[in-house]
Design a protein around this nucleic acid. Sequence first.
DNA 1: TCATTAACTGAGG
DNA 2: CCTCAGTTAATGA
Length: 257
Amino acid sequence: MGECLKRSDTREPYLNTADVFEPLIRRLRSISALDQEDANCLRAIPISLRNLRSQQTVLAEGESASQSCIIVSGYCARTKSTAQGRRQIVSIHIPGEMPDLQTLFLVKLDHELCTLTDVSLAFVNHSDIRRLCKDRLTIRDVLWRDTLIEASLLREALLNLGQRPAPSRLAHLLYEVRERLKVLGLNDPSTFEMPLTQEQLGDALGISWVHTSRVVSMLRKEGVIDFSRGRVHVIDEKRFAALAEFDKLYLHQSPSE
DNA sequence: TCATTAACTGAGG
DNA sequence: CCTCAGTTAATGA
């Protein structure tokens, strides 16, 4: 699988636990000016690592927590389901993100947090995050900014789901994931890891898995992208971007603006 | 287990 | 009448 997604040894994955924070620090630096001292304070937070298999629940709806996690490797999703059991993936999360940071202030989780692939998660205590926010205002501010940006991503996802046709919807989702991966150091943007099953993809796009397969094979036949075994290859960059209608303003990646 | 494809269906423009 | 998308089912990897 992917270079940035998996480590082979799951028992003793990191000799240096500070490594765990690098994707997070890269991400926060892409949206704000963190100095060396801020980064070191983050690296000093105690963590406990947990490895989970694909399709597991990290936190169920209604649960509370005294810790939040940083995704070290693998992809997670936040989901909500109807009473009839139809599932919507509300957001997809990649390494360096803290998908359950909200439990710091919203006591009971209003959705489920689950794994889409095998993942490694680093859990940090709420008390440590609170202390850090009190001591280092730049960190407090960047976490605030990060959650506002997350709300912006949700608005974009809502537009995508409600108003774009399925091929554009898929293209936009893939384009966004690629933009977010770039921050972590994606050297060749013509190919990237997207290890979701088509059923998971369908749950994120609001279409059935059969239709997901149709749309994927349509884009393949059209020569826009190739997508197999969890990896996307962009064949025609121009048409990919046009189809996605991608405008990265909503990612708010320039720290100064 | 996951992906592909065909056939049929209905909604809606 | 055409396009999109859900369902069902058969089949392949």
